[in-house]
Computed example of a mutant assay.
Amino acid sequence: MPTFSEALALGKITTTEALNIFDSLDTVDISAMIGAWKGAGFPTDHPLDGALEAYHWHGKRFETPEHVHPLVFNTVDGNTASINPLWMLPVVGWLDRMPIPKSEAVGMLFQIGLFLFSTDRSGARLRLTTYRGKKTATMIYDSLPINDIFRKVDNQTLLGLMDLKGMKNPFFFVLRRE
């Protein structure tokens, strides 16, 4: 089994290998989540691999356990904007059935129209849940059947796993504290 660092260097691993890495990591307390985090993919040949980057995903912002911005994107002018996760509902419905467009042109169009989807309102909350036998910080979306479960790589880095109801395999991502 590769380590977290080895997996990053490889550029892509299997879902089984990613789950083994995830299971080997320490849990995360909710208090350790508070703050802004920069996101990146952790490729496992999942349909979402590369999509967040194509759409200029920046990361997540945890203001309090009750006020979380799960989808923060880079704007054209170099700032960031949070979007309402409810806008992702059409994508969630066909995630396993159709490929997600990941072209530079589609990503740029999304970025230009980002103001249409932006919000200052929270779109999720944090709770401790037990997942794969360990109690750890979990981000629960307010309007989607999605939980993001976190494990600690180090004090500045988390490995996240998106658990979507009905999705065959989880989607993995990395968060680094800003």
Rank of each mutant, 00 (worst) to 15 (best):
L164H: 08
I21G: 01
Q111E: 07
G166T: 06
L175Q: 12
F150S: 01
N147W: 09
S82Y: 03
K152E: 02
P65K: 14
S143A: 12
L19G: 01
D77Q: 11
L109H: 05
S143R: 14
L158C: 04
L128E: 08
K168N: 12
P170H: 06
W94N: 09
W87R: 03
K152C: 10
L109P: 01
L48Q: 14
D49I: 10
T27E: 11
T3D: 00
S31T: 15
M33C: 15
H69T: 00
E178F: 11
L164I: 15
K102Y: 04
G123P: 06
I140T: 07
E178V: 09
T130A: 07
F62R: 04
S122T: 09
N169L: 07
S24V: 02
F62N: 03
G35H: 10
Y141D: 11
L52S: 12
A81F: 03
N74C: 07
T138E: 09
S5G: 06
M98K: 13
R177S: 10
V72M: 14
D154L: 05
D45C: 06
M33N: 05
M162P: 00
I146D: 04
I100V: 15
N20L: 10
L159F: 01
G41D: 15
D148V: 15
T138R: 04
E6T: 10
A54D: 11
A40S: 15
P43K: 14
Q156T: 14
A54W: 08
D96A: 13
P99H: 02
G50V: 07
Y141Q: 09
P43Q: 11
L19K: 10
D148A: 15
M108D: 09
G59C: 08
F62L: 02
K134N: 10
A36D: 13
F62Q: 03
V92H: 07
L19Y: 00
G59L: 07
T3Y: 00
M167L: 11
N84F: 08
M162A: 15
